[in-house]
Amino acid sequence: MTEVTDALLYLDGVTVSFDGFKALNTLSFVVAPGEMRAVIGPNGAGKTTMMDVITGKTRPDQGTALFRGSADLTKLDEAEIATLGIGRKFQKPTVFEMHSVTDNLLLALKGDRAPRRVLFARETLSERARIDEILETVRLSAVRRRLAGELSHGQKQWLEIGMLLAQEPELLLVDEPVAGMTDAETADTADLLRRINQTRTVVVVEHDMTFVRALDVKVTVLHEGSVLAEGSLDHVSADPRVVEVYLGR
């Protein structure tokens, strides 16, 4: 496919329906390289479904989804899309609970994932250095030997972000990273994401308005499967329709 857009992520006219209910309704959503974007919207607006479409978990009924203008995301599966350079953090923190923190990161490190390569893989010095570096970044060095299942909720969230970093994706999709975090943790997370954004493109889905404000980036409001408004947080909060369906009350 020839390049039709210079956007990193390009969704156009994407529709997904479940038994007649349209979770996404001709959604169009474009993210430029290096951008950080916040996505907000009421429950059922289609935020998670949009993530599912981008990461290959859900196939849209119609519409275009391109990565780097050339890779057709509607044709690839999760693993291929991940290898392509899209990382995803789930709404509910999902880490390998029976593995140590270090092993979680080790498994996430960029590298050949083919079974026959992994079969004979040994941990290299550069891998160990990279893991140390990430542990520093997500502040988990102290608990590196603990099983991931024993971490606190907030630590798991950070470990998952750490795993995303280890993947070295070009685009990070982060679903509700601060759910269940304390105010201090929330602020730290915003900080972390901004740092990550210096080298990577980030899409954040979040309900927490303080957090979105702290990120201080362009905001997309989803409602009933399509974009209701887009712009700075101040711009969209002034939009009466946004107030009506989401912010108000």
Binding site: T55, K57, D77, E78, A79, A82, T83, G87, R88, F90, T94, V95, F96, E97, M98, H99, D103, L106, L107, A108, R113, A114, P115, V118, L119, A121, R122, E123, M163, Q167
Partner: peptide, 27 residues
């Protein structure tokens, strides 16, 4: 070995393994 760690990862969180780029079905 690392292979076994991937297996346990698949057992405990299959979709996480997929989103990390592991072709779960091949394993």
């Amino acid at each position: 070995a690392r292979f076994g760690k991937v297996l346990v990862a698949i057992r405990d969180a299959e979709s996480r393994a997929r989103f990390l780029g592991y072709r779960v079905e091949r394993y």
